[in-house]
Design a protein around this nucleic acid. Structure first.
Lengths: 135, 135
DNA sequence: TGCAACCCTGCCGCCAACGGCAAGGTCAAG
DNA sequence: CTTGACCTTGCCGTTGGCGGCAGGGTTGCA
């Protein structure tokens, strides 16, 4: 194996973006957030190897699931493997649970607001119909 | 009536804030948003008459109910009366309904995210993600 | 040689309703 | 005369994940 030029797929940001269904802009954002890293070619272009694909997909999965970039950071250690297979660290679970609580909180708040508006709307239309009947 | 100095209560921003349970900062914000107006004393202090109290309370009511400052703008014509019991123009009702729809949308989105995270968390008792796996 | 298609680093904008601070003016009481 | 409580304008920060643009380089290809 040693010495054998095991060619590693090396892609530029645009390709990685396509391969992961995202944009170059987002990838730079992830890098700035410290979630991915990149080597640089002589011309300063970012260069990634194929592990980046898995990594980015894992990130996207976690984001899609409702975590924030900040949350994802605690998954860094296992982001290169199958995040699935990786033993979900207690930390990861805890973060996810906390995020879940936050989401529930926000939903509750929004729902309250919604109910208030709905009630106000009901009251108003109720008054309207009463007024209509009376007149 | 003419010539009779009908004294109108004239308050400054701090008093109005207290009277309406908000802050001077918020009142300036409402003014900037075109929801309230003010006269100016010689020293450039904002001066309000007592109608402003009703007006601001109405604004706060509509905000509390779930509308945005932008939404509130369509209620301007009747903001000096009792909005809660107000002649809700068709426009007002429509805006409120639209806002209700928006709120419901957001709740639905958040709820979806919440459910996804919850599901992932359940799965994760064994493994977290499947997204990255080729399998 | 010229051009399109890449890439780079900033930096502002977004959505909402203000909070907070700076740096100053004003006014009444002590 | 000096506090101190008011008021003024103006501008940045908050929350989150980028989008979009400006103003450049680099590269492959006809």
């Amino acid at each position: 194996m040693i010495g054998v030029a095991r060619e590693v797929e090396r892609v530029r940001i645009g390709e990685l973006a396509k391969a992961t269904g995202t944009t170059a802009r987002a990838l730079r954002h992830y890098e700035q957030a410290g979630l991915i890293s990149s080597e640089r070619a002589a011309n300063d272009y970012r260069v990634y190897d194929e592990r980046a694909v898995v990594r980015v997909r894992n990130i996207r999965y976690l984001l899609a699931v409702g975590l924030t970039l900040d949350d994802v950071r605690v998954f860094l250690p296992c982001l290169d493997g199958d995040v699935a297979a990786a033993p979900p660290s207690d930390k990861g679970l805890r973060v996810a649970s906390e995020r879940l609580a936050v989401l529930n909180e926000r939903i509750a708040a929004r729902t309250e607001a919604r109910d208030r508006l709905e009630a106000a709307l009901r009251d108003t239309t109720g008054r309207l119909s009463r007024a209509a009947t009376v007149s």
